[in-house]
């Protein structure tokens, strides 16, 4: 009898709390401020610059957050701060894997590694000025001498770098999109319900042991 009463009591209590839980869940699903508390860092290379974007997985950006860039051995190469849109860009000083660390404060931290082979298009930082210096006389020669000769002067490497630059410019929106969609993963109703399911599963296991123990006596 006592057990029965207890059972009844707890079903009622469970109902009350389940109602509350469902309300919270409803809020979670419908409210516009549904965010996941996770810092996401994405980066893409364009020309000789690495563009970094930091944000929370709801799509809001990490404003004025500190960014540090490390080489594979853990040496800090440079540091900076994101702007109002959570963006940060830098010219990599060397062609190795770069580990980016974003510190959004209050213990929030995100990491992203730019692999070395993505940096192929990157010319070591001071070379950016040399390409400009080289292209200037080319233009001049194009004016003074015949066009055919000018074409002959543009060597293969330069064509490659121009094509590279154009492609990267065209790909930039796409790269941004990919980065954004990457940021939005990791938070879905499936996972929410999955998590609740796990908790109730654990409850079931605990109850099972309790009742098995009870039946022995």
């Amino acid at each position: 009898m006592h057990r029965l009463n207890l059972c009844k009591k707890y079903t009622r209590i469970s109902k009350v709390i389940a109602f509350f839980l469902l309300t919270v869940l409803y809020l979670t699903m419908t409210a516009p401020w549904v965010l996941a508390h996770k810092v996401l860092l994405t980066a893409y290379v364009e020309g000789d610059t690495v563009f970094v974007e930091g944000g929370f997985s709801d799509g809001t950006s990490c404003k004025n957050a500190g960014i540090e860039v490390f080489d594979p051995s853990g040496k800090k190469l440079l540091e900076g701060k994101t702007n109002e849109n959570g963006e940060f860009s830098f010219k990599p000083p060397q062609k190795t894997d770069l580990k980016l660390v974003l510190n959004a404060g209050m213990g929030h931290r995100g990491e992203y590694t730019v692999p070395a082979d993505e940096l192929q298009g990157v010319v070591v930082s001071n070379q950016a000025t040399t390409t400009e210096a080289m292209s200037a006389p080319t233009v001049e020669t194009r004016k003074t001498q015949g066009i055919s000769e000018a074409i002959a002067q543009i060597d293969l490497k330069e064509i490659e770098s121009i094509v590279d630059r154009v492609i990267q410019k065209r790909l930039r929106p796409l790269a941004k999109l990919v980065a954004e969609s990457q940021r939005k993963t990791g938070f879905s109703p499936t996972e929410i319900f999955g998590g609740i399911g796990y908790i109730f599963g654990l409850m079931g296991v605990a109850m099972y042991f309790r009742y098995r123990k009870g039946s022995k006596f």
């Binding site: 509350f20 549904v34 965010l35 938070f187 109730f200 409850m203």
Partner: peptide, 18 residues
Amino acid sequence: IPQVAILSSAFFVASLVH
């Protein structure tokens, strides 16, 4: 146990309300 489990899942979900 049921009460603990329900409050545990309430906490689990509440952290998603930002």
